[in-house]
Design a binder for these strands. Sequence first.
RNA 1: GGAGACGUCGCAUAGUUCGGCCUAGUGCACCACCCUGCUAAGGUGGAGUCCUCGUAAGGGGACCGCGGGUUCAAAUCCCGCCGUCUCCGCCA
Length: 422
Amino acid sequence: MIDPVLLRENPDVIRASQVARGSDPGLVDVALQADADRRSALAAFEELRAEQNVFSKKVGQAQGDEKKALLAEVAQLAARVKEANAAATAADEAYTDAARKIQNPIIEGIPSGGEDNFVTLREVGTVPTFDFEPKDHLELGESLGAIDMTRGTKVSGARFYFLRGIGARLELALMNLALDRALEAGFVPLITPTLVRPDIMQGTGFLGEHSDEIYYLPADDLYLTGTSEVALAGYHSDEIIDLTNGPLRYAGWSTCYRREAGSSGKDTRGIIRVHQFNKLEMFVYTTPEEAEAEHDRLVAWQEGMLQSLGLAYRVIDVAAGDLGSSAARKFDIEAWVPTQDAFRELTSTSNCTTYQSRRLETRYRTESGKTAPVATLNGTLATTRWLVAILETHQQADGSVIIPEALRPYLGGMSVITPVGA
RNA sequence: GGAGACGUCGCAUAGUUCGGCCUAGUGCACCACCCUGCUAAGGUGGAGUCCUCGUAAGGGGACCGCGGGUUCAAAUCCCGCCGUCUCCGCCA
């Protein structure tokens, strides 16, 4: 939800943001009008209500004929109050609807344009080269007895898989490494619910144009979350949180569910794009002033993980047109995937400024003691997809895979994975 | 799944019988000042959240889990939902 004061006082900023995103700037004028309508309707109602309150008090004290007279007088007023109340409620809803359609104003200076207009901030690590024909992650995964796609499909359908043996262990090792890193950085670990109520899903901004990406259980009116961000954002909803000791940082682990409705035919091989995976997500509540600096810290923690795993990657500043509605700025880290001869997204970190917190009513006390919406940020610290880059990057000519040193303590010291039966 | 009890301004509670003296009282915690004087205590005052009008001072309105309804008037009556607790059943 956008800041109504910004809307009123500086609509041009929001218009410009809408244009940069390739969205409709006309929504700003609709919202402005709705805001004006809403306030005048509210004023009209409140004036009538004040009048009625005075009358009611008199009625309560009056007796006999005087009371009868007052009642006759006030009956009509009551009807008008009711009408005005309904009008004010309707106007308020109209404003909320209009305001919700407007996306989070982007942070000035981010790239404009669409998916291909990102700016590469830096490339780190050496892109691996091979003196043999590298195998892709699925071929490796199958020969290592780590990924079983065939049976995943048999049991659950396309885009489902089993992680098995060393594959299952590798994933848990990765998650544990990420969790330890998060703990070092002061994050509070949380294992989150993966089914959430509609208002929470709505509040995080996921029920907009991408609602067909989300699994829904009509019998229970619950949504399956595609990321623990949803539950983490809802964690402090409707609360006034204490930020005097610094940001609240949470590391949420959960299984994530995505319908991948709009991506049929894309990334159909292996575990790059699947309906279900695991993820350790960082989520931060902080002041709006601190948000941009925190955003940089989140990227740094992500880079630390990728570097420890020996992956080559680049950090990109995502263009306005490719941002979700909640994000004011987003950095993706893409790791090199040898058999695709391309960088593929492994992490994403968004600065949602106060957009989510306004919807979810998460506030803090400023130094002056007033309440104000907090800023929220989120970012990936590890997901199942990372296995793709790890397996492919560290493969050897004989089909074995060297385990990055950072993961070895979580695998009983194991340093290499060899093909099953080899 | 069945039965019952409950949900009040940070926490704990009063208020719900019989709708209006509730602009929701009290205790604790909190803030300021005063008194006292020091491992105490006492006094006075203040203080919730949100919206809205106003340059301001200061007004107005909403909020008693949430949403409806009845009424001139709802914390209080009615309906639905959510949640908590207790007991029973079921499962582990």
